[in-house]
Design a binder for these strands. Structure first.
Length: 194
DNA sequence: TACTCGATCGGA
DNA sequence: CCGATCGAGTAA
């Protein structure tokens, strides 16, 4: 059974490290009728602090970005291009504006498609990433091997200038690479076939 | 109050 | 390649 991630995790590490750590975790959505859907996170981006020119909080605390200054563990949802909701997890300690953009879950590529598929909108902006809000993160023990994780510059942030646009803070992996191959054996204890 | 421009997507 | 679509941010 996947367990909800503890909020302390979201405040402990730098945003790029945290973004990597979210790969392979479940994004769990509880629908209004109580049905629980789990989606494996496969692609994320890190936005790290007021100095990061790609980060919305680069120009300081405003009505929209104030949620990014909260302690890690709440959602930051905003409207992009007038029609797409973007889902971010606020990270870091209080007053350090940072977040991880959820760009893709297994079977769904693109941040706008993720929110559309999960019915996530700005009503969740500022809500806790906890079961009570109906949208949270969970861990079933899967560890994505470091070697499978690829890092590239973030998408659509050329406005940030060459230095910040080039930061390799987009992380993703191909979940099909996790499949156990013939001739190899998953290293787990117990239930060894006779 | 006017004006600009997106952390995107789907269709020519 | 281009248009959709709208609210935050900025300047005035």
């Amino acid at each position: 059974m996947p367990e909800p991630l503890a909020p302390e995790l979201f405040r402990s590490r730098s945003t790029p490290a945290l973004a990597r750590a979210l790969l392979g975790k479940w994004l769990v959505r509880v629908s209004p009728d109580g049905v629980v859907h789990r989606h494996r996170i496969v692609e994320v981006e890190a936005y790290h602090g007021g100095a990061d020119r790609a980060c919305h909080a680069n120009r300081g605390k405003t009505a929209r970005t104030s949620v990014m200054f909260e302690p890690g563990g709440v959602w930051y949802v905003y409207l992009c291009y007038g029609m797409h909701e973007m889902l971010n997890l606020v990270t870091g300690p209080a007053e350090f504006p940072a977040a991880v953009l959820i760009r893709g879950v297994e079977g769904i590529s693109g941040p706008g498609r993720v929110t559309k598929a999960l019915a996530v909108g700005r009503a969740l902006n500022g809500a806790a990433a906890a079961p009570a809000s109906g949208l949270y993160l969970a861990d079933d023990g899967l560890r994505v091997p470091r070697a499978l994780i690829r890092a590239t510059p973030r998408i659509g942030v050329d406005y940030a200038g060459p230095v910040w646009a080039a930061k390799p803070w987009r992380f993703f992996y191909d979940p099909s690479e996790l499949v156990v191959r013939p001739g190899r054996r998953r290293a787990r204890s117990g239930n060894t076939p006779a």
